[in-house]
Protein backbone atom coordinates (compact mmCIF):
# COMPACT_ATOMS: atom_id res chain seq x y z
CA UNK A 1 0.00 0.00 0.00
CA UNK A 2 2.68 2.52 0.88
CA UNK A 3 6.40 2.58 0.34
CA UNK A 4 8.54 2.42 3.44
CA UNK A 5 9.33 5.76 5.04
CA UNK A 6 10.89 6.78 8.35
CA UNK A 7 8.47 9.66 8.74
CA UNK A 8 5.67 9.16 11.27
CA UNK A 9 1.99 9.99 11.05
CA UNK A 10 0.94 8.30 7.81
CA UNK A 11 -1.90 6.27 9.31
CA UNK A 12 -3.22 9.10 11.43
CA UNK A 13 -3.19 11.79 8.74
CA UNK A 14 -4.56 9.56 5.99
CA UNK A 15 -7.23 8.19 8.33
CA UNK A 16 -8.39 11.61 9.46
CA UNK A 17 -8.30 13.03 5.93
CA UNK A 18 -10.32 10.22 4.41
CA UNK A 19 -12.84 10.19 7.26
CA UNK A 20 -13.38 13.95 7.16
CA UNK A 21 -13.57 13.92 3.35
CA UNK A 22 -16.19 11.16 3.50
CA UNK A 23 -18.37 12.84 6.10
CA UNK A 24 -18.25 16.33 4.65
CA UNK A 25 -18.21 15.64 0.90
CA UNK A 26 -18.54 12.05 -0.24
CA UNK A 27 -21.51 10.78 1.80
CA UNK A 28 -23.66 13.86 1.07
CA UNK A 29 -22.82 13.59 -2.64
CA UNK A 30 -23.62 9.87 -2.63
CA UNK A 31 -27.00 10.76 -1.13
CA UNK A 32 -27.62 13.08 -4.07
CA UNK A 33 -26.93 10.29 -6.55
CA UNK A 34 -29.01 7.87 -4.48
CA UNK A 35 -32.04 10.14 -4.43
CA UNK A 36 -31.77 10.50 -8.20
CA UNK A 37 -31.88 6.71 -8.49
CA UNK A 38 -35.20 6.71 -6.68
CA UNK A 39 -36.68 8.81 -9.49
CA UNK A 40 -38.29 6.90 -12.35
CA UNK A 41 -36.69 7.47 -15.73
CA UNK A 42 -39.82 9.13 -17.10
CA UNK A 43 -39.96 11.54 -14.15
CA UNK A 44 -36.28 12.33 -14.58
CA UNK A 45 -36.68 13.14 -18.27
CA UNK A 46 -39.76 15.24 -17.53
CA UNK A 47 -37.90 17.19 -14.83
CA UNK A 48 -34.76 17.91 -16.86
CA UNK A 49 -36.48 18.42 -20.21
CA UNK A 50 -39.33 20.83 -19.54
CA UNK A 51 -39.42 23.96 -21.68
CA UNK A 52 -38.52 26.26 -18.80
CA UNK A 53 -35.50 24.12 -17.87
CA UNK A 54 -34.31 23.91 -21.49
CA UNK A 55 -34.54 27.71 -21.76
CA UNK A 56 -32.40 28.02 -18.64
CA UNK A 57 -29.76 25.63 -20.06
CA UNK A 58 -29.57 27.69 -23.23
CA UNK A 59 -29.08 30.91 -21.30
CA UNK A 60 -26.62 29.43 -18.76
CA UNK A 61 -24.44 27.53 -21.23
CA UNK A 62 -24.61 30.31 -23.85
CA UNK A 63 -23.77 33.17 -21.49
CA UNK A 64 -21.10 31.10 -19.70
CA UNK A 65 -19.48 30.19 -23.03
CA UNK A 66 -19.48 33.79 -24.30
CA UNK A 67 -18.15 35.06 -20.96
CA UNK A 68 -15.33 32.49 -21.00
CA UNK A 69 -14.52 33.45 -24.58
CA UNK A 70 -14.28 37.15 -23.71
CA UNK A 71 -12.12 36.22 -20.73
CA UNK A 72 -9.87 34.10 -22.94
CA UNK A 73 -9.20 37.08 -25.24
CA UNK A 74 -8.85 39.81 -22.61
CA UNK A 75 -7.25 37.44 -20.09
CA UNK A 76 -4.56 36.66 -22.67
CA UNK A 77 -3.92 40.36 -23.23
CA UNK A 78 -3.80 41.03 -19.48
CA UNK A 79 -1.51 38.06 -18.73
CA UNK A 80 0.80 39.04 -21.60
CA UNK A 81 0.97 42.66 -20.41
CA UNK A 82 1.65 41.63 -16.81
CA UNK A 83 4.41 39.16 -17.75
CA UNK A 84 6.14 40.96 -20.62
CA UNK A 85 5.90 44.69 -19.85
CA UNK A 86 6.92 46.82 -16.89
CA UNK A 87 4.48 49.69 -16.48
CA UNK A 88 3.19 52.01 -13.79
CA UNK A 89 0.57 50.30 -11.63
CA UNK A 90 1.49 46.78 -12.77
CA UNK A 91 1.54 45.34 -9.24
CA UNK A 92 -1.83 46.91 -8.38
CA UNK A 93 -3.40 45.49 -11.55
CA UNK A 94 -1.85 42.10 -10.79
CA UNK A 95 -3.31 42.11 -7.26
CA UNK A 96 -6.74 43.32 -8.47
CA UNK A 97 -7.09 40.39 -10.90
CA UNK A 98 -7.96 38.12 -7.95
CA UNK A 99 -10.78 40.35 -6.77
CA UNK A 100 -13.61 38.18 -8.14
CA UNK A 101 -12.19 35.31 -6.02
CA UNK A 102 -11.91 37.41 -2.87
CA UNK A 103 -15.15 39.39 -3.12
CA UNK A 104 -18.27 37.63 -1.80
CA UNK A 105 -20.54 36.90 -4.76
CA UNK A 106 -23.55 38.65 -3.21
CA UNK A 107 -21.51 41.85 -2.86
CA UNK A 108 -20.30 41.62 -6.48
CA UNK A 109 -23.88 40.94 -7.51
CA UNK A 110 -25.41 44.06 -5.97
CA UNK A 111 -22.45 46.21 -7.08
CA UNK A 112 -22.74 45.09 -10.73
CA UNK A 113 -26.51 45.58 -10.59
CA UNK A 114 -26.16 49.12 -9.22
CA UNK A 115 -23.65 49.92 -11.99
CA UNK A 116 -25.70 48.43 -14.82
CA UNK A 117 -29.21 49.51 -13.80
CA UNK A 118 -30.67 52.20 -16.05
CA UNK A 119 -29.83 54.88 -13.45
CA UNK A 120 -26.33 53.46 -12.76
CA UNK A 121 -23.01 54.82 -14.03
CA UNK A 122 -22.66 52.28 -16.85
CA UNK A 123 -26.32 51.42 -17.36
CA UNK A 124 -27.35 55.03 -18.01
CA UNK A 125 -24.70 55.33 -20.75
CA UNK A 126 -25.83 52.06 -22.32
CA UNK A 127 -29.43 53.30 -22.27
CA UNK A 128 -28.55 56.66 -23.86
CA UNK A 129 -26.19 55.43 -26.57
CA UNK A 130 -28.20 52.25 -27.17
CA UNK A 131 -31.26 54.24 -28.08
CA UNK A 132 -29.16 56.61 -30.26
CA UNK A 133 -27.76 53.56 -32.03
CA UNK A 134 -31.21 52.12 -32.71
CA UNK A 135 -32.53 55.44 -34.01
CA UNK A 136 -29.46 55.78 -36.25
CA UNK A 137 -29.90 52.22 -37.51
CA UNK A 138 -33.58 52.73 -38.25
CA UNK A 139 -32.82 55.90 -40.22
CA UNK A 140 -30.43 53.88 -42.35
CA UNK A 141 -32.89 51.08 -42.86
CA UNK A 142 -31.21 48.53 -40.58
CA UNK A 143 -33.39 46.38 -38.39
CA UNK A 144 -32.19 45.91 -34.79
CA UNK A 145 -35.60 44.97 -33.51
CA UNK A 146 -34.83 41.27 -33.13
CA UNK A 147 -32.19 41.91 -30.46
CA UNK A 148 -33.85 41.54 -27.06
CA UNK A 149 -33.48 44.33 -24.52
CA UNK A 150 -32.40 46.85 -27.15
CA UNK A 151 -34.94 49.38 -28.41
CA UNK A 152 -35.25 53.07 -29.18
CA UNK A 153 -36.99 54.01 -25.92
CA UNK A 154 -34.93 52.20 -23.27
CA UNK A 155 -31.73 51.87 -25.29
CA UNK A 156 -29.57 48.91 -24.33
CA UNK A 157 -30.80 47.40 -21.08
CA UNK A 158 -27.79 45.91 -19.24
CA UNK A 159 -29.30 44.96 -15.89
CA UNK A 160 -32.29 42.59 -15.75
CA UNK A 161 -31.46 41.14 -19.17
CA UNK A 162 -29.29 38.44 -20.75
CA UNK A 163 -26.56 41.07 -21.02
CA UNK A 164 -26.56 41.29 -17.23
CA UNK A 165 -26.05 37.53 -16.91
CA UNK A 166 -23.16 37.77 -19.37
CA UNK A 167 -21.54 40.68 -17.48
CA UNK A 168 -21.75 38.89 -14.11
CA UNK A 169 -20.32 35.66 -15.56
CA UNK A 170 -17.47 37.56 -17.24
CA UNK A 171 -16.64 39.19 -13.90
CA UNK A 172 -16.64 35.90 -12.01
CA UNK A 173 -14.46 34.07 -14.58
CA UNK A 174 -11.95 36.88 -15.08
CA UNK A 175 -9.08 35.56 -12.89
CA UNK A 176 -8.96 32.03 -14.32
CA UNK A 177 -7.42 32.68 -17.75
CA UNK A 178 -4.96 35.27 -16.42
CA UNK A 179 -3.79 33.07 -13.56
CA UNK A 180 -3.34 29.91 -15.67
CA UNK A 181 -1.56 31.80 -18.48
CA UNK A 182 0.86 33.82 -16.34
CA UNK A 183 3.15 30.91 -15.32
CA UNK A 184 3.04 29.47 -18.86
CA UNK A 185 4.09 32.82 -20.38
CA UNK A 186 6.85 33.20 -17.77
CA UNK A 187 8.20 29.75 -18.69
CA UNK A 188 8.46 30.59 -22.40
CA UNK A 189 11.99 30.38 -23.73
CA UNK A 190 12.79 33.82 -25.13
CA UNK A 191 15.64 32.37 -27.20
CA UNK A 192 13.20 30.42 -29.35
CA UNK A 193 11.37 33.64 -30.19
CA UNK A 194 14.64 35.37 -30.98
CA UNK A 195 15.65 32.44 -33.18
CA UNK A 196 12.35 32.68 -35.05
CA UNK A 197 12.80 36.39 -35.60
CA UNK A 198 16.42 36.07 -36.68
CA UNK A 199 15.28 33.53 -39.24
CA UNK A 200 13.04 36.22 -40.68
CA UNK A 201 9.69 35.59 -38.99
CA UNK A 202 7.56 38.66 -38.39
CA UNK A 203 6.30 39.44 -34.88
CA UNK A 204 2.90 38.10 -35.84
CA UNK A 205 4.33 34.90 -37.30
CA UNK A 206 6.39 34.37 -34.14
CA UNK A 207 3.27 34.83 -32.05
CA UNK A 208 1.14 32.60 -34.24
CA UNK A 209 3.67 29.79 -34.81
CA UNK A 210 5.88 29.84 -31.70
CA UNK A 211 4.16 31.46 -28.72
CA UNK A 212 0.53 30.47 -29.22
CA UNK A 213 1.14 26.72 -29.70
CA UNK A 214 3.19 26.45 -26.50
CA UNK A 215 0.72 28.29 -24.27
CA UNK A 216 -2.42 26.93 -25.93
CA UNK A 217 -3.01 24.12 -23.37
CA UNK A 218 -2.87 26.68 -20.54
CA UNK A 219 -5.25 28.96 -22.43
CA UNK A 220 -7.68 26.04 -22.87
CA UNK A 221 -7.40 25.15 -19.17
CA UNK A 222 -8.14 28.75 -18.17
CA UNK A 223 -11.05 28.95 -20.59
CA UNK A 224 -12.54 25.69 -19.31
CA UNK A 225 -12.11 26.70 -15.65
CA UNK A 226 -13.86 30.01 -16.32
CA UNK A 227 -16.64 28.23 -18.24
CA UNK A 228 -17.12 25.64 -15.47
CA UNK A 229 -17.23 28.27 -12.76
CA UNK A 230 -19.76 30.32 -14.74
CA UNK A 231 -22.07 27.30 -15.22
CA UNK A 232 -22.62 26.91 -11.50
CA UNK A 233 -22.53 30.56 -10.52
CA UNK A 234 -25.44 31.84 -8.47
CA UNK A 235 -24.72 34.78 -6.13
CA UNK A 236 -23.39 37.33 -8.57
CA UNK A 237 -26.05 36.56 -11.21
CA UNK A 238 -29.34 36.50 -9.31
CA UNK A 239 -29.32 40.21 -8.54
CA UNK A 240 -28.51 41.44 -12.05
CA UNK A 241 -30.44 38.90 -14.12
CA UNK A 242 -34.01 39.83 -13.27
CA UNK A 243 -34.89 36.11 -13.01
CA UNK A 244 -37.67 36.09 -15.58
CA UNK A 245 -38.66 32.49 -16.48
CA UNK A 246 -37.81 31.59 -20.13
CA UNK A 247 -35.85 34.85 -20.50
CA UNK A 248 -33.25 35.56 -17.83
CA UNK A 249 -33.54 32.60 -15.46
CA UNK A 250 -30.27 30.66 -15.03
CA UNK A 251 -30.25 26.97 -14.13
CA UNK A 252 -28.84 27.47 -10.60
CA UNK A 253 -31.73 29.78 -9.83
CA UNK A 254 -34.19 27.23 -11.17
CA UNK A 255 -32.76 24.64 -8.74
CA UNK A 256 -33.29 27.06 -5.84
CA UNK A 257 -36.82 27.86 -7.04
CA UNK A 258 -37.72 24.15 -7.20
CA UNK A 259 -36.38 23.66 -3.67
CA UNK A 260 -38.45 26.54 -2.37
CA UNK A 261 -41.53 24.85 -3.83
CA UNK A 262 -40.44 21.62 -2.06
CA UNK A 263 -39.97 19.95 -5.47
CA UNK A 264 -36.93 18.00 -4.25
CA UNK A 265 -37.08 15.49 -7.10
CA UNK A 266 -37.04 18.21 -9.75
CA UNK A 267 -34.19 20.09 -8.06
CA UNK A 268 -32.17 16.88 -7.74
CA UNK A 269 -32.69 15.86 -11.36
CA UNK A 270 -31.55 19.25 -12.72
CA UNK A 271 -28.58 19.23 -10.33
CA UNK A 272 -27.46 15.88 -11.70
CA UNK A 273 -27.45 17.31 -15.23
CA UNK A 274 -25.33 20.27 -14.09
CA UNK A 275 -23.00 18.03 -12.05
CA UNK A 276 -22.44 15.81 -15.08
CA UNK A 277 -21.50 18.89 -17.12
CA UNK A 278 -19.07 20.05 -14.39
CA UNK A 279 -17.42 16.64 -14.15
CA UNK A 280 -17.07 16.42 -17.92
CA UNK A 281 -15.35 19.83 -17.87
CA UNK A 282 -13.08 18.71 -15.01
CA UNK A 283 -12.08 15.77 -17.19
CA UNK A 284 -11.29 18.17 -20.08
CA UNK A 285 -9.15 20.28 -17.73
CA UNK A 286 -7.16 17.27 -16.52
CA UNK A 287 -6.70 16.15 -20.12
CA UNK A 288 -5.40 19.54 -21.34
CA UNK A 289 -3.03 19.68 -18.37
CA UNK A 290 -1.80 16.21 -19.23
CA UNK A 291 -1.16 17.43 -22.80
CA UNK A 292 0.70 20.46 -21.44
CA UNK A 293 2.93 18.25 -19.27
CA UNK A 294 3.63 15.86 -22.13
CA UNK A 295 4.65 18.78 -24.36
CA UNK A 296 7.34 19.65 -21.82
Amino acid sequence: MKKHSVLPGFGLTLGVSVTYLSIVVLIPLALLVWSTMSLSFADFVKAVGSKQVIASYKLTFGAAFLAALVNAVFGFIAAWSLVRYRFFGRRVVDALIDMPFAMPTAVSGIALTALCASNGWVGSLAAKYGSKLVIFAEEHGLDFMNIPYLNRYDGLQLAYSQFGVFIALTFIGLPFVVRTLQPALEDLDREVEEAAESLGATKFQTFRRVILPSVFPSLMTGFTLAFARALGEYGSVVFISGNLPYETEITSLLIVAKLQQYDYAGATAISVVMLTASFALMFVINFTQYLARRRK
Binding site: P28, L29, L31, L32, A228, L231, G232, E233, Y234, G235, S252, I255, V256, L259, A267, T268, S271, M274, L275, S278, F279, L281, M282
Partner: peptide, 11 residues
Protein backbone atom coordinates in the same frame (compact mmCIF):
# COMPACT_ATOMS: atom_id res chain seq x y z
CA UNK B 1 -16.22 21.74 -9.35
CA UNK B 2 -19.64 21.74 -7.73
CA UNK B 3 -22.04 24.67 -7.95
CA UNK B 4 -22.63 26.23 -4.51
CA UNK B 5 -26.35 25.77 -5.00
CA UNK B 6 -25.88 22.02 -5.47
CA UNK B 7 -23.63 21.94 -2.37
CA UNK B 8 -26.53 23.37 -0.39
CA UNK B 9 -29.03 21.00 -2.00
CA UNK B 10 -26.93 18.02 -0.97
CA UNK B 11 -27.38 18.91 2.71
Amino acid sequence: AISPVIAGLVF
